[in-house]
């Protein structure tokens, strides 16, 4: 039977609900990029499911004309896991934020990543609690003054990418609200990847944390953003004049043509390498080290997903079972007759 081929446009994925984010919020760009990416994915509209937790970003499913579930704080990933395991044919997207995924949902996040169910996670990172009006989050920078840290935040922040690497996640990418075309492309790659794909989306909270990512996302700061692609040299800057090199155990920024540096000296990105060492350096780059922030697919290392392994066990048990049906099971073991 020929599969029914339907051409969708992004409008097919917009619901009739009014989008209620603040004007100027970075989340609009992410919503748009997702809706534009979806027609290019080989998935039927009814097979998309968007599942979120609580927070500004978690309103996302209401704006999608797909199956959606706006759940409870921090648990979206656990819910999405159940949905995907119940029906592996679905394309399950988990929408979460820095508070939802890394504070209240931190445990689910690391376990989802190590478990590697084929889920697509978009982690909206604005480094602040927006919906509760401006408290620090697990990604808020040290020293940052917020409503609950009036003298400055005194905890070291999480870096989502580093958590993913630490939990041996299979796919990690970073995007920003200011580059919608790049975002769209990365979402398509995340969908294509079989396993838990985590996409960290740097997004601007215009009300409580405005311009927090500008150093790495504003168009005037090209020297601070590196877009990696598998198999390509790590070049950046307005003229692609800068590159990354490995110096001992450290990444360093170099300029082509300066100190005899040539293109051959520049690191070539390998997203498929099992070891996480370089990946950890790449996700941490830009943390007060003079390096650019890295965007794009930083890690994509294929391995059997949880559900593939689960199905293999089901098949093997089916083949070897002595019970054809429940009546067989109930009557197994020692039985006796009362006459």
């Amino acid at each position: 039977m020929e599969l029914e081929k339907v051409k969708y446009t992004y409008k097919d994925f917009s619901s009739d609900q009014e989008v209620k984010w603040c004007p100027g919020c970075g989340d609009y760009a992410i919503l748009n990029a997702v809706q534009k990416a979806m027609p290019e994915m080989p998935v039927k509209k009814e097979d998309f499911v968007f599942i979120s937790g609580i927070g500004c970003s978690s309103r996302f499913p209401y704006y999608m004309n797909t199956y959606g579930f706006h759940s409870i704080h921090g648990r979206g990933l656990a819910i999405a896991t159940g949905t995907k395991l119940a029906n592996p044919n679905l394309s399950v997207w988990q929408i979460t934020g820095d508070g939802d995924a890394l504070a209240i949902g931190g445990n689910h996040f690391i376990h989802a990543v190590r478990r590697n169910v084929d889920l697509n996670v978009i982690l909206f990172n604005n480094e602040i609690y927006g919906l509760t009006k401006g408290q620090f989050s697990p990604t808020t920078k040290l020293g940052m003054k917020t409503k609950t840290s009036p003298e400055g935040q005194i905890q070291n922040p999480f870096n989502p990418g580093e958590l993913v690497m630490g939990a041996k996640g299979r796919f990690f990418a970073r995007v920003m609200d200011k580059k919608p075309k790049h975002m769209k492309q990365i979402f398509i790659e995340a969908e294509k990847f079989k396993g838990t794909s985590v996409v960290e989306a740097l997004t601007n909270c215009v009300i409580f944390n405005d311009k927090i990512h500008d150093q790495f996302t504003h168009k005037t700061n090209q020297q601070n953003m590196l877009f990696v692609e598998h198999g390509k040299p790590m070049l950046f800057g307005s003229e692609k004049q800068y590159g990354l090199m490995l110096h001992g155990f450290k990444l360093i920024k170099v300029e082509l043509g300066v100190n005899h540096v040539t293109i051959d000296d520049i690191l070539v990105h390998d997203a498929h390498v099992e070891e996480t060492g370089l990946g950890i350096m790449l996700v941490n780059a830009g943390m007060n080290d003079g390096l650019p922030r890295v965007f794009g697919v930083i890690r994509a290392v294929q391995e059997d997903t949880f559900e593939v392994r689960m199905q293999a066990q089901v098949d093997s048990v089916r083949e070897n079972t002595k019970y054809n049906n429940l009546d067989d099971l109930f009557a197994s073991g020692e039985t006796w007759e009362i006459k």
């Binding site: 499911v49 599942i51 199956y67 579930f69 759940s71 409870i72 648990r75 656990a78 819910i79 999405a80 896991t81 159940g82 949905t83 995907k84 395991l85 119940a86 029906n87 679905l90 689910h108």
Partner: peptide
């Protein structure tokens, strides 16, 4: 939570 997700999916 995973069970509720599976319930949504028809289990």
């Amino acid at each position: 939570a995973s069970t509720i997700g599976a319930s949504f999916a028809g289990s």
